[in-house]
């Protein structure tokens, strides 16, 4: 059984009286430990699909099931709790909170758990170590390079050991060297730590790091 199952998923935005379909009747399975890359031109609905999987947006029709739990049937409150337990999100612009240190940014998801301060510290330091920034724990985002900021964001995404990591153009704002480092790190997360990753990108070099590539174009999803 796949970790992520998407069945007959459609998303149609309504603007005034005009219906704007993003995609219709999509099916997708992602197995545990898979590193899947989703490619497609701008506006093809990649980010929308990612948001739907994370329960940040509601589909027009269809179902999404992650680890046997139907995400599309959850209330907003249930979704918040589910996301904190099962989803690690990596954004294109890192989206770190600028007033918190690297340590505090990584710790954020753990504040939603019942871990003690000591346990949280252990988890955060482990995550920072994995992303190679344990010596930057007390740095604020403005004191870090773009690549380092994204690594902190990845630390934040993995610190609570989520079931699924969703990455939306994580290298889109980085130079080639930093992008390469980030992709290597993601590959490592997948291979060493068996993390299931869905990476959205339109960068062919990034796509080559995944185990499989899917294309979303004009509302149609193809392998």
């Amino acid at each position: 059984m796949a970790l992520l199952e998407i069945r007959s998923l459609s998303k149609v935005y309504q603007r005034d009286s005009q219906a704007i379909p993003v995609f219709e009747d999509i099916d997708l399975d992602i197995d545990t430990g898979e590193f899947l890359v989703l490619m497609g031109p701008s506006g093809s609905g990649k980010t929308t699909l990612l948001n739907l999987i994370a329960g940040l947006d509601e589909p027009t029709t269809g179902t999404i099931t992650v680890g046997g739990e139907e995400v599309t049937a959850m209330s907003r409150r249930q979704l918040a709790a589910w996301r904190s337990d099962h989803v690690g999100f990596i954004f294109q612009l890192y989206n770190l909170l600028p007033v918190l240190t690297a340590y505090q940014n990584v710790e954020l998801p753990l504040l939603l758990t019942h871990l003690s301060k000591k346990e949280r510290r252990e988890h955060v330091m482990t995550a920072l170590e994995v992303v190679g920034l344990s010596d930057r724990a007390d740095h604020f985002p403005r004191q870090l390079s773009g690549g380092q900021e994204q690594r902190v964001a990845i630390g934040r995404a993995i610190v609570s050991d989520p079931t699924l990591i969703l990455a939306d153009e994580p290298t889109g704002d980085l130079d080639a060297k930093s992008a390469d480092e980030i992709l290597t790190l993601m590959q490592r997360l997948n291979r060493e730590f068996s993390k299931t990753i869905l990476l959205v990108t339109h960068d062919q070099r990034a796509a080559e790091r995944g185990e499989a590539i899917m294309h979303l174009d004009k509302g149609v999803l193809t392998r």
């Binding site: 994370a54 907003r76 409150r77 918040a80 709790a81 996301r83 989206n95 909170l97 600028p98 998801p109």
Partner: peptide, 14 residues
């Protein structure tokens, strides 16, 4: 707004 989005995405309740 982006910071709020991050907090909500991470699972903090409204």
């Amino acid at each position: 707004a982006p910071e709020i989005a991050v907090l909500l995405t991470l699972g903090f309740r409204p």
